[in-house]
Amino acid sequence: MTAAPTLPTDQQALAEEIYRLMVAQGALFAVDTPIRQTLANLAAFLARREGRDRAELEAVIDAALSADSRFTREVVDGEVRFVTSRQGAYVPRDDTDTHSFKQRLHEPEHPLPIDDISVVVSTSRPAITTVEPVYISDYWQMQLAAAPVESEAQAVAAPEAPAPVVEPVSEEAPAAPVAAPAPVVEEAAPEPAPVALEMPAPAPVVEEPAPPVAPAPRPVQPPRSTVFTLSDGTAIDLRRPVDEIMAEHGELLAQVLAERLEHDPLQRIVRFGRKYYPEGSLASFGKNDLRKIRDYILERNEPLLDTEIIADLYYHNPRQADYEGFRFSLNYRLHREKDFEFVGVEGAYLWATRGLAITSGKRVKAAEMGQITSYLVEGYDDSPELQSIEAIRQSGNVTRLLTFFEWEYGVLPLDAGLAALLPPPLLPDQRSAVLRFESPQHYTTYLVEVRFPAGNRGGWLQGLEEFFHEHLVPGALITIARTGEPNLFHITYEEGPEQSERLLTFDEKKNRLAFANVSFYCVVDEDQLPTQSRYGRLNRLKAFPMGERRKAELMLEHVSEIIGDQVGTPAEPRYAVTLDDLYVAFNVLRPGSRAYLKALLERGEDFSADESTPGLYYYAPAPRASTEEVEEEEEELPEERPPLRQRYSSRYDEDE
């Protein structure tokens, strides 16, 4: 690599020696890195080593190195320096990039003028996918700007349909513009009748020839009514304070507006529950979002609050300005998805998903339970007689006795008393709500599903089976009370000393009722406690399949026959039974109120009331048909009765 300079031998040797010296100094440099040394330093070093005169040596070195092509001479601030490198003569590195692809990619040949960088590129990265704005062409923007602006008062007075010309009431047609009356406002009449009703026969507007007069300095507005009427004739005077109008007509106006927004073909304002939000401002949720939410609900294995979903999956802070809008968007989107079911109430928006078992135990199918509790919607709900609705609303709690059926299956019929205590459904098509029942006596919590009544189906609560079996017996008095949270309730009972009784139990494996020794620690109503000593024949009741138990008349006949006292003959049996005993026994097989039982007894052909003893009834079953006749009837039955799905609404089909 080193050059071979043609120099006098002594100069050549000197240059070679200095080159080796400088390369030794820069031994660790890169091969093309410059190695610099001043002439003074070189002369001083060699003068000391060889004992020669320094000034003379400087001249010799300068001549030798200047003639050698491996060295470059440079003068900095009057000082002579020589530069070389490990590869010989120093050549400055050329960093010029000969590739132009990057430049051609990023720099357009004819760039468009921009006012704001955010027009060209997004300067922020959104956390979630967002709806791209829809740009409207300049043509339509100009059309919009040219459109006449409609004032509010006009919008009200002349809304959608072309309005007929209405003359001012009790005013004569003005003869000339200058004579037109000043703007007047109707005096508030004691009963503000709709203006249109006060009109005389419709008179055409006649323009009289105006006499020549000086033009009025300011155009005078025709008088305008401030009383408006709704479609049902309700008059509203807009001069009254808004608070007064809201107090008197707020609900009606809200109903009119809600209908209007619902039927808006563009759906510009959308609704969830009682809240409204612009459709264009909704945050977007894609399929991945929905799958993520569904997986999370299944992972947690219980319905989740919307706020939990947002906090855990989207890390959205409630203090963020767009939090409520994002929350509305989530609820609105999930409500439109068939994989999600809203099971919340006002103040606690809970979401369940397909495949999530909300409450344990599927012992009673929803379709059957809806029919069993249908007596509640048929007018046989006597719960307000025990505790008035007003008292329940004021006290915030409801107290009731447990029947055997309720205790066994952990189910409570949703009667008027419970409905007054529990929150109503938030959405019009809401099927169920999930509440949390807390036992302050045992520090346990239960998820309770409330199934709302629908059509001819009754409602009920389910999910308390474990609590009932662990702490209570049939006949116990329970109290359900509201708490500060809309979906949290307390369930309590009165504790008592230990008692042991032989009580009715249901052996599910053998599918039969039996008496067993049970110890319990709660206060009970002795009349409702199904003990062997008092209701010794209850274990003879047949544990019908749930589908059969829907037939209340059949159950009543069976119960009367089992627990009634035989007062007839074997050929013509006749059973005497009291209403109180019937109530206890009937509620072993299925729920039923006393009012319902009375109605069944009154319309049952084989039942008769004892006129001397109130509450005592006789059951005299009709002579049984022969076996052949029964078989014939059974053969005809399938032809007469339509299939189950045709007989009942499809609401609970998926539960069957």
């Binding site: 008062a153 009200v156 001069r239 808004v242 809201m246 707020g250 009682r274 409204y276």
Partner: peptide
């Protein structure tokens, strides 16, 4: 016009009342 629940109705009534008031003045 429906502007950040009955709140929508109230807001619109306020707009109308204001328009009526201004016209009377």
């Amino acid at each position: 016009r429906l502007w950040t629940d009955t709140d929508l109705v109230r807001h619109y009534l306020e707009i109308l009342s204001k328009a009526v008031r201004e016209e009377n003045e």
